[in-house]
Design a protein around this nucleic acid. Sequence first.
DNA 1: ATAATTTGCAACCGATCAGTTGCAAATATA
DNA 2: TATATTTGCAACTGATCGGTTGCAAATTAT
Lengths: 106, 106
Amino acid sequence: MRRDIFQAIADPTRRAIVTLLMTQALTPNTLAERFDTTRQAVSKHIKVLQECGLVAGEQLGREIYYKIVPMKLKEVADWLEPFRQMWEDNFNRIDDLLEQIKNKEL
Amino acid sequence: MRRDIFQAIADPTRRAIVTLLMTQALTPNTLAERFDTTRQAVSKHIKVLQECGLVAGEQLGREIYYKIVPMKLKEVADWLEPFRQMWEDNFNRIDDLLEQIKNKEL
DNA sequence: ATAATTTGCAACCGATCAGTTGCAAATATA
DNA sequence: TATATTTGCAACTGATCGGTTGCAAATTAT
């Protein structure tokens, strides 16, 4: 079973869960109330998020408060970083390279 | 059919393709040579990447050079940005909030 | 002790996904 | 013109995904 951070945040519901957990730790029941779905569906999403290390649960009596592990998202940011220079540059290198190929053909 | 940038970069092969396209525009055939898979499989990945706007093709004769559209990745970076403060902060707010809940219970 | 609450796990279902195979269209080469 | 190359599209397959239902375990409340 593939369980990496990229696959974890691919699902919009999971991203919404992560966003909710940004401000406070929540229980599965509380989370489920925010979405038009069952608690079990939310629980399965939590399991995915937990297995990839993006959230962590902390038991308090019979309730489990799930909190975000923000550092995990840094892996995505690190992967994006090399591309940042590309979208921040005014000129587009790929276009230039393509132009070079074109000119070579002529 | 879901076709957003998050789902596009969820697949490791597609991320590898995007990384290869970072330095130069490539044709489907050239790309396929780099992976242990068929050209058609790569073509399907390209289609997904193209449909979500992460790559764009430019025809040169019978060949099509696919190039990356880096700006599209900014959408992911923008989603990550609010979390950046969290992983850069030394203290963890969620832990604090959880402590508050705990103390309230006592 | 009994009942209610909160949660995780397993089984199942329909939809989607990644990959393969086969084929047709367009372009380049002989 | 005939052949080879490059590509996209459609059909198919096995695997995975998101969601639901049912149930058992642990904790809390009556």
